[in-house]
Design a binder for these strands. Structure first.
Lengths: 244, 244
DNA sequence: AGACGTTTAATTGCCAGACAAACATTAAAT
DNA sequence: ATTTAATGTTTGTCTGGCAATTAAACGTCT
């Protein structure tokens, strides 16, 4: 771990990688305290600011947390699912916005993943999850709702469906797919809004989930996916003539 | 973006967040050059080391890249899927190792996601993807293979299956699920190895994919999932009596 | 002896200033 | 015109220091 080939620049990146590898390998267990910045500087034979830059890199990935004071220092952080959610969402959002991924591709991935989750959700859903889904569907039917609030409720509905599977790994993976789609869906609902249809489909899904009916849930999800793709196509068709 | 409430500590985190939000919001487009460290220090009214810590936080997330020299500086980085793969894999690995996720839960998530991907892969697979799958299956049948090499080939097989869907968003999501499972699978294959069975199932999958047979592919994936869970159960059962 | 306030030491957070290295531009020399 | 040298800009790193925070050690009083 103390290896640090003196060849190039970017010392802080090398130090960060060394510590990161040690954490991944398990030689630095959770809640273990790292040496103080001064000690690390001595070990790696660099200055303290360089060590600090390395530690900030790790902190940005939630790999460590720091604490001031006498018994303070940098501690290996237990990476929690909630922390990873946020990273996953921002990464997914940036990936979509920076790589001109088509709406079709993003939507396809999103519903493929959600359909993978649904059979488990149907089987294990609690009354709590079902209540959340119904509450969100009900909120979406209210007339005075802004577009942003509608989309947020839409996301909450689908997250409840995903969480009903009771598998935190799945919830983590789906978080990025569902939440990152929100800005893209916003662009669409502005022009081609037909909330009744979406609310109806959401209600269908909630009903099927309540009956533990996996087949019906899946077919309603497919219908929702198809409808979303249709909306996108309409928007694209409506925009092209203006440019041509 | 220049807002920086002077209340608490952690200035570098605040600055990093301000820049990050600007990138997400799109006010800093890809390849845009940020002001120099000295200018940023002046704008935020902090010292240059603090600015540098903030920039290192962003660099750790691949949000910026830096370049030395006269025309150098920090540039908004186009987040590529390949870069995100690595982050996704390490995050997933750490999540699994630090949160005592049961093998059952992880395996369930992994195969649920892969089964979601498979129908698309079956439909769109190219000869190239199929060749990769067959090559890996063939390699797995060779006798002199180490456990590590077998697992690596196993991962390569499933990644080929996932990539065959031709959806980079799905490939990105699945990367974490498939690759993070490798260490867990290693623990099992050490004791209860029956590679013939796995190779046979892989061959079945490749055959079904070649025939564009989604139903058969899915059933073989289910068989593989079931068999993996059985293996894990055997290992658990074999370990408990020793302790009790 | 025990409770309570004070000091002390360790540690992170932040800063000022400086030098080195890399790099592009410009000026000068051949 | 081409090559070479000078120059300026920017990041990378170092030195040294001070402030803020925190827990533990210490001492004092009841």
């Amino acid at each position: 771990m103390k290896i640090d080939p003196s060849n190039p620049a970017d010392l802080s990146a090398q130090i960060a990688k060394a510590i990161k590898d040690a954490i991944i390998a398990g030689s630095l267990p959770v809640d273990e305290r790292l040496p103080s910045e001064a000690e690390l500087a001595e070990q790696f034979d660099v200055s303290r600011p360089t060590v600090r830059e390395a530690l900030k890199r790790l902190a940005a990935q939630s790999l460590i947390r720091t604490q001031r004071g006498a018994t303070g220092g940098a501690f290996v952080n237990r990476l929690r699912f909630e922390d990873a959610y946020g990273q996953q969402i921002t990464t997914s959002t940036l990936l979509l916005s920076m790589n001109d991924v088509s709406f079709t591709t993003a939507c396809e991935a999103r519903y493929a993943l959600e359909r993978a989750c649904a059979p488990l959700s149907v089987q294990r859903r609690t009354a709590d999850h079902l209540a959340t889904m119904r509450a969100e569907a009900h909120r979406q039917a209210q007339p005075g709702l802004t577009d942003e609030a509608f989309c947020a409720s839409d996301v909450a509905f689908h997250r409840a469906l995903v969480d009903a599977a009771g598998n935190p790994v799945l919830s983590y993976q789906l978080a990025g797919a569902v939440e990152a789609m929100q800005p893209l869906m916003n662009m669409i609902t502005f022009t081609a809004r037909s909330r009744e249809r979406i609310v109806a489909l959401h209600t269908d899904i909630a009903n099927a989930v309540e009956r533990h009916d996996a087949t019906a849930t899946d077919s309603h999800l497919v219908a929702l996916s198809t409808y979303t793709q249709e909306l996108a196509q309409n928007v694209i068709d409506a925009r092209k003539p203006r440019k041509a």
